[in-house]
Nucleic acid binder design. Structure first.
Lengths: 115, 115
DNA sequence: TGCGTATATAAGCATATAATTATACGATGT
DNA sequence: ACATCGTATAATTATATGCTTATATACGCA
């Protein structure tokens, strides 16, 4: 591990604690392949909108994700510029793909596409 | 990522939550290079013995570490046979070495050696 | 302007977590 | 057998976390 890629324990444990929640971990894996808006997460996790927003806020607070408004929706995406993104990426690499979640959204007509 | 190395979200978030504590994360990194007994951890973390024992119990409960009694001491070591050890290892690889902690123990005459 | 939709935030509550203190247990040495 | 050392466990407490409900804000459209 090169010196520049080393993460201090304080920082690493903070990141791991955030990822140590099934909902947030799944969000991150999903975002790695698909930008999503809040209402999509609500459908995917079958969870209340405020609960989803609060998870996203935590990820946003440490800048693991970015938000971008597109019309009435706010889309979230992974912040690949994040200093610790390589670390995050190496963790997410161990998780199964979540394409079925997105496919299910499309089947139900809940997928939001903004162009 | 090969199919056999994939970890389910439930399991992964459980592991990450455990590592999402600075003390336990440091313990794991230390154990990767040096087996340690409880009293060494107490000295390193300047933390009460029961607090240390309770962190170790959590790591032991999911079998990330093994314990072995040697005389009056109980030594802990990483369970490299653990199904998810490659995952754990890839996380620990990002953390700085902790040799100074062990060196400090030796300086203070607190390092326990059992042969 | 007013209404509906999407999202964020605040407050309250239940549960989880991590520490402390007190106590129990097991091994060693006298 | 007893005292001491190292460690584990139990009970308690303080704080953190994640959810719910209620409310506020921002946008799009008639």
């Amino acid at each position: 591990m090169d010196r520049g890629e080393v993460i201090e324990f304080q920082r690493a444990s903070q990141l791991l604690k955030l990822l140590g929640d099934k909902t947030r971990l799944t969000m991150m894996k999903l975002l790695q392949t698909h930008d999503c808006c809040v209402c999509e997460f609500v459908a995917i996790f079958n969870m209340s909108q405020p609960a989803v927003s609060q998870h996203l806020r935590k990820l946003r607070d440490i800048e693991l994700v970015k938000e971008e408004r597109k019309g009435q929706w706010i889309f979230y995406s992974i912040n690949t510029e994040h200093e610790d993104y390589p670390f995050i990426q190496s963790i997410l690499a161990y998780l199964p793909e979540q394409d079925e979640s997105i496919a299910a959204l499309e089947t139900q007509g809940l997928r939001i596409i903004c162009e």
